[in-house]
Amino acid sequence: MNATLLIDYLKQEILHDETIDISSSDNLLASGLVDSMGIVRYISWISERWNIEIPPQDMTIEHFITIDAIVAYLESRGAL
C-alpha cells in the first residue's frame, strides 16, 4: 500500500513518466533513474507526506536506495 503510493508519486511527479515499470526492490539511484535534484525532491515530498523531519544525517543511500528501503526507513521512524 505504502510502496504503491511511493512508486506512483515517483512515476508521476519525479520521473513524469507513468509507463516506467518500477518494482519496490529496484535500485533507484545506481541506474541513474532518479537524478540528484529528483531524489532530493522525492525525499522532500516523503517528509511532508508522512510528516517527519528527515535530518541530513539520515539522507543516506541505505535509506533511499529502493522503495523497500524507504518503507523500512519510514517504519524505523515510526511513521508507518
Binding site: 539511484l29 541513474g32 537524478d35 540528484s36 531524489i39 532530493v40 539522507m59 543511500i61 533511499f64
Partner: peptide, 8 residues
C-alpha cells in the same frame, strides 16, 4: 562520503 548520486 557516498551520497545519493556520484554527482552529489
Amino acid at each position: 562520503i557516498i551520497s545519493f548520486t556520484a554527482d552529489i
